[in-house]
Deep mutational scan, measured.
Amino acid sequence: MASQGTKRSYEQMETDGERQNATEIRASVGKMIDGIGRFYIQMCTELKLSDYEGRLIQNSLTIERMVLSAFDERRNKYLEEHPSAGKDPKKTGGPIYKRVDRKWMRELVLYDKEEIRRIWRQANNGDDATAGLTHMMIWHSNLNDTTYQRTRALVRTGMDPRMCSLMQGSTLPRRSGAAGAAVKGVGTMVMELIRMIKRGINDRNFWRGENGRKTRSAYERMCNILKGKFQTAAQRAMMDQVRESRNPGNAEIEDLIFLARSALILRGSVAHKSCLPACVYGPAVASGYDFEKEGYSLVGIDPFKLLQNSQVYSLIRPNENPAHKSQLVWMACNSAAFEDLRVLSFIRGTKVSPRGKLSTRGVQIASNENMDAMESSTLELRSRYWAIRTRSGGNTNQQRASAGQISVQPAFSVQRNLPFDKPTIMAAFTGNTEGRTSDMRAEIIRMMEGAKPEEMSFQGRGVFELSDERAANPIVPSFDMSNEGSYFFGDNAEEYDN
């Protein structure tokens, strides 16, 4: 993207840094990872977990959730003011799984939030270390993106479920800051804005008074975040219109849905970061690795190297396929839920299948599930090659597409044709070009129609051997075009429920 120079890199967003050079960025990201790792080690000690239990991804998720809940100030305040039966607002906890007599047992633990905050700050040299908290939120978000298709949420806001490739980060909490905003897809931002506008339509006082002023500035800020994701002048001009509207209503909703559809071809720039579970960072720190000293990046080879040398386990339900569970977590670790499966298959070195073909449910185990038949197995999170994460949407291309997802959002900077089903997408653009945004709409449609099938995206960008740390010898991959490109292809993934 041309304006790259004016933006802070995501590592800076990730670490609240002012302008830093590459070495400083690597050190501050490393410091953040160190903090998460030290916190995780301490929690495993508190909970008396064995090494194996500490490497269980379900335990990692519970521990991450506990610290996120302990620092969720708004919710904590709300819980104190609106006490609900049987919930102690000062405590947080969740299921911890232990191996007892050759069987997995679930144990519900409860801790004072104050105590968890103390352990977290102690692991982070006394700081609140917001960057580390956001990092864990993005890992949870990436896992949700890989596990669930947001059909219901899309339909509720009037969008087409086939636009799911635009929904990265749709389950990120509001408090995820600049680093969170960077990884949100165009569809996620559109959905947040539509929800806001709908509230304004239904509630006369939404934009009024002292609160209304705050609401208005939040609305304009979200519009600017979305505008910054678009790469064409016409899309940005249309966002200006939406932002400046005196009284946002149905016309703005129409414009936003139009823009979301246009992003299936004229893709937005959305950041991709490899955020790993805390149970990967903990053992690495415990083994003596100093992330701050060595430096770390979320968008280069580092996460690949770390996963190459990590042992992570997962509980497996009786009829689940461990290899499929591994694929789910591998995609989440690489922030690749909406990437082209052919690119992923090449990088991973084994075939990556669409969601609907995987015999696996989510990673988390519900409290009512029976533990008797639970097994555990090693997650295979290694890769054959590594590639640089991208934040450009890439230019655009036609490809055989599917009944489910009709476009992709690249996660890796790797040369390819970008699949999208042009006739299906263009069919949504018939007729409606009147109104105050008509010239911009016409211009956007013209650009979409001009998108050429034979153009290559990320020209000359390749993948790298894991021994090639400096990215000196790019390998331009070859793809098996007979395979499906979309992950949520004609899909039956479970729906995400809060």
Rank of each mutant, 00 (worst) to 15 (best):
T350H: 00
T188W: 13
V363K: 13
F489E: 10
T215S: 03
G158P: 02
Y111D: 03
A123R: 02
K305W: 10
A286G: 00
Y289A: 07
T350C: 01
T23S: 05
E64S: 06
N432Q: 00
M43Q: 07
R118V: 10
S407K: 10
R317Q: 11
A411Q: 07
G435Q: 11
G37M: 10
C333K: 11
P477C: 11
S359C: 08
I347K: 13
V299M: 08
F71M: 04
L418S: 10
V312P: 03
A403V: 03
I347Q: 09
G30E: 12
V100D: 02
R204H: 12
E469K: 08
F206V: 14
C275L: 09
V242C: 15
P322D: 04
E454V: 15
Q409M: 14
A22F: 03
T6G: 11
N432A: 06
S287R: 02
I406G: 12
I138N: 02
S377L: 12
L341S: 12
M239R: 13
I365D: 12
A131N: 13
P283C: 00
S335M: 13
Q20K: 04
E484I: 04
A237V: 09
N370E: 02
Q231D: 10
E14F: 01
L172I: 02
G300Q: 13
N125H: 04
R246L: 05
I33C: 02
A123T: 07
R389I: 02
H82N: 00
K214L: 05
E14Y: 09
R416A: 08
P477E: 08
F206Y: 13
F489T: 10
G126Q: 08
P89H: 03
T23F: 06
Y281P: 09
Y40W: 12
G93K: 13
Y111T: 15
I36C: 10
F412N: 12
G126I: 14
K91M: 09
Y313G: 00
G30N: 00
I63D: 00
S141L: 03
S274G: 08
V183E: 14
K77G: 00
S245H: 08
A278S: 12
R361T: 04
S383L: 12
C275Y: 08
S165M: 15
A179T: 14
G17A: 05
S353D: 09
S438R: 02
L315Q: 08
V109E: 08
T215D: 01
A233M: 12
V414L: 06
D480T: 01
S326K: 11
D16E: 13
V280N: 12
G356S: 10
D34V: 01
L328Y: 10
S402H: 06
Y52S: 14
T6E: 11
T437D: 15
M447T: 04
L276K: 12
K293L: 02
E252T: 11
G393D: 08
N321T: 15
S383D: 07
I119H: 02
L226M: 11
A403Q: 03
A442F: 07
P410S: 08
S413H: 14
A337S: 13
Q122L: 05
V463K: 13
F464R: 14
M105C: 01
W120L: 14
L133C: 14
I388T: 03
S376E: 08
F346H: 13
E115D: 12
G394A: 07
I225T: 15
N483E: 12
Q235K: 06
D34P: 09
S457Y: 08
A336I: 10
S297D: 13
A336F: 09
A442Y: 01
R221F: 12
W120H: 06
Y52P: 00
T147Q: 02
L341R: 14
N205I: 12
L166N: 14
G356Y: 10
L259R: 15
N417W: 14
K452Q: 12
M238Q: 14
G393R: 08
L193D: 13
Q398K: 15
T6I: 12
Q327Y: 13
R391C: 06
R106T: 01
R117I: 15
V100G: 00
E320A: 08
K77W: 09
G177Q: 09
L68P: 03
M196C: 04
R246T: 05
I119P: 06
G86H: 08
I301M: 15
R382D: 15
M189V: 07
W386G: 13
I63T: 12
N59R: 00
N247A: 01
P423R: 15
M426Y: 13
M105H: 00
G35S: 00
G362Y: 11
T390S: 08
A131Q: 15
R317G: 15
Q399P: 02
G94F: 08
P303E: 10
C44A: 00
L49H: 14
M137A: 03
C275M: 07
R38I: 04
C44D: 07
L79I: 13
I63P: 00
M238E: 02
A22E: 03
L49M: 01
R118A: 00
S359D: 07
K273R: 02
F39E: 09
D290S: 13
P419A: 01
A182G: 04
F479Y: 00
L166M: 04
E484H: 08
M1A: 10
P161Q: 02
S376N: 03
R389W: 14
R118F: 07
G249N: 09
V109T: 00
T134L: 07
I36A: 04
S407D: 10
D290E: 06
F420E: 13
R195F: 10
Q364M: 03
I197S: 03
D88N: 05
I265V: 15
P277D: 07
L226K: 13
R446Y: 07
H324V: 10
S269E: 10
K184A: 03
S482Q: 10
A181N: 00
G282L: 08
G268D: 12
R216L: 01
E252L: 08
A337D: 13
E254P: 12
V186N: 12
M136S: 06
M447R: 09
S9P: 07
Q398R: 14
A2T: 06
T45R: 00
R243A: 00
Y219D: 15
V312K: 10
P248E: 10
F304I: 14
Y385N: 14
S170P: 07
L418N: 10
N397S: 05
P453Q: 04
G490E: 09
G180K: 13
T147C: 04
D372E: 03
N224L: 10
L110I: 01
E455V: 03
D439T: 09
W330G: 02
G35N: 08
R216M: 07
A493D: 10
A271N: 09
Y97L: 07
Q415C: 02
I265Y: 12
F230V: 12
N224F: 06
D112E: 04
N144R: 06
T188R: 13
S274F: 07
K325Q: 07
H324C: 13
L154S: 04
K227N: 15
M32T: 13
Y289L: 09
L341F: 12
S367Q: 05
S287G: 14
E434H: 08
A373K: 15
G485S: 06
M222S: 06
K227P: 11
L315R: 07
F412L: 15
L358T: 14
V109Y: 07
H324Q: 02
F420C: 03
I138Q: 07
G30K: 09
D127A: 08
S297M: 10
I406S: 15
I257R: 06
R19K: 00
R156F: 11
I347C: 12
L172A: 03
S359A: 00
S359R: 05
V285D: 07
N250L: 02
V352S: 06
S314M: 08
I253L: 02
N125T: 06
I257C: 09
N21I: 02
D421C: 15
M105T: 02
R470I: 11
H135L: 14
T92V: 08
M137I: 04
C164D: 08
G300H: 11
A427S: 14
V29N: 14
R106C: 10
W120F: 13
L166V: 00
T188N: 12
G86M: 04
L307C: 15
P453E: 07
F346M: 06
A442L: 00
S3M: 01
R195Q: 05
V109K: 01
V190E: 08
T6Q: 08
E64T: 05
A278M: 05
R55Y: 13
I197C: 05
M13P: 05
E210G: 08
N142L: 02
Q122I: 02
